[in-house]
Design a protein around this nucleic acid. Structure first.
Lengths: 278, 278
DNA sequence: TCAAGCTGTTCTATATTTAGTACAGATATC
DNA sequence: GATATCTGTACTAAATATAGAACAGCTTGA
């Protein structure tokens, strides 16, 4: 019963241009494995009809796919899915992103974007169970791996905890280290994973296009007494990194479920030698 | 050194319209907690200058935010962040999505979109470690929760395993149940989580706008002997559901890390009574 | 060699988006 | 009640996106 049914929903203001819609449609077909690396696409006239756009528009979409290296075009011959097709990127541990990357020998650095004491937004205040009126030390940072922007981090720490830290601390040390230096113990945490779209400012910091998809992770860290000591909102580039976890089937009969397992050694060269080679 | 630095990158073909860029910028500022529920935004002329667009364009972006219920506009007064602001949606267990939802008493149903025996794409073939030439039973399904589209699933099962199943089976039974009915044991799995953009066709099936962000989960299931028995690509709507996990800090000294913990009881009414109420 | 099919390029015409401006009507504040 | 500020609306002009078509040049295969 939606208006999408008739298909003639053209011109919804904040929606997508036809070029971008065609671009996404192709990207999706590639991601779902419709073509194999090196395979030739249908011709431009055919594709244009399939996608319901003119050939000019289709070509703009293909221009973009080519610029991103997803396809290769050979004059007079056709458009081909590039060798590395939809191939997955480097994979990271879901829970210990930073530790994991350091283990891999990657150099990480941090750029501090902002640093201030502010009234927390309501969801952060309730996640940290802060009393009314208590402020937080809020910092926005970008973490770079081997010089490439990797994650956009917004951390909020109760004022009384963060008060001793300098901007220099935040630009150089991981937050967990600062917490433990302050005598606090990170005991347990609850994290939520979701997806979000990159706004223009975040996109600029991460070196991606606005409107790209991002992996969003929200984590609240508690001390042994269950008091909130840190709130983290992180945005990751899914084109460079994705999260991985192993599961084992545990339980009996009806209660049988998947149980997450800590990723021990991170077998990157295993089964996927190519990812390690590049 | 990127072309994004000068800011005058207007008109990149498959990029975003200025209206959509403004829409995303506002959405981002809201998500990052810049405004609190009920708070008034800067006036339209001010916002237009801040975002670098004309007031007409800004209003189109606001129209959309209003249509999505994120903001409320009062004539002559201003634009206000709506009560439920950036509030998180229902939260689901990361590993046992389906089981978890059933536990919550939700009714799920499935729509089978396609069903065929095809040559697997290279990444699926290598994930399942299939011998050259072996085909897979590939099905595309949409799972609905309480009648609402929730996830888009593409499952691939080695031909020799799936050969006994009918389309009706796939439309009614969970795949794990079919596997175990066939005498196979799902022992362990490896899953990868990332983010993706919705293409027009997936968007139509899930009842969302093309270009929306989606949570993407890829899972390969193995039997006790380590042979691949199922490959799953799932896309979830992050506006309705997100994944949650608990972590505990384990290990000593330098080796201290976060260890994932199975979510036991799923405390939904805890701390967030509002989400349960709606 | 030839013909068919493909991409690359250019052009015109139309539709849509965006900027800029002005003004009407509603609301809040003093 | 006067006044400033705000949203709602309307209009014009310019920039951009899209459709449709034609043709040139390259590649492939019969």
């Amino acid at each position: 019963m939606d208006s999408a049914a008739d298909g003639t929903e053209r011109g919804f203001r904040a929606g997508l241009s036809r070029t971008r819609a065609a671009y996404l449609a192709l990207r999706d077909r590639i991601a779902r494995g419709e073509f194999r690396p090196g395979e030739r696409f249908p011709g431009e006239p055919t594709l244009a009809v399939e996608l319901g756009v003119s050939r000019v528009t289709l070509r703009h979409a293909l221009d973009r796919l080519e610029a991103e290296g997803l396809v290769e075009r050979r004059m007079g011959s056709g458009t081909y899915l590039s060798a590395r097709g939809g191939g997955s990127p480097v994979v990271a541990d879901l829970a210990n992103v930073l530790t994991h990357l350091v283990d891999m020998g990657r150099r990480t650095s941090v750029r501090l974007l902002s640093f201030a004491y502010v009234a927390p937004s309501p969801d952060i205040a309730s996640a940290l169970q802060l009393p009314e009126g208590e402020r937080v030390q809020r910092s926005e940072r970008v973490r770079l791996i081997d010089g490439q922007p990797f994650s956009y981090l917004v951390t909020s720490v109760p004022e009384r905890i963060g008060i001793g830290w300098s901007e220099d601390d935040l630009a150089k040390k991981p937050l967990l280290e600062l917490l433990e230096r302050a005598g606090l113990v990170a005991d347990h945490a609850r994290q939520t994973i979701t997806a979000a779209l990159a706004g223009p400012d975040v996109a600029r910091e991460l070196g991606i296009e606005p409107g790209s998809a991002l992996l969003a992770l929200t984590r609240t860290v508690f001390d042994p007494q269950g008091r909130g000591i840190e709130h983290l909102q992180a945005l990751y580039r899914p084109d460079l990194y994705s999260f991985q976890m192993d599961l084992v089937r545990a339980g009996h009969r009806e209660g049988r479920r998947w149980r997450p397992v800590a990723v021990e050694g991170l077998k990157l060269d295993d089964e996927h030698p190519k990812t390690a080679a590049e």
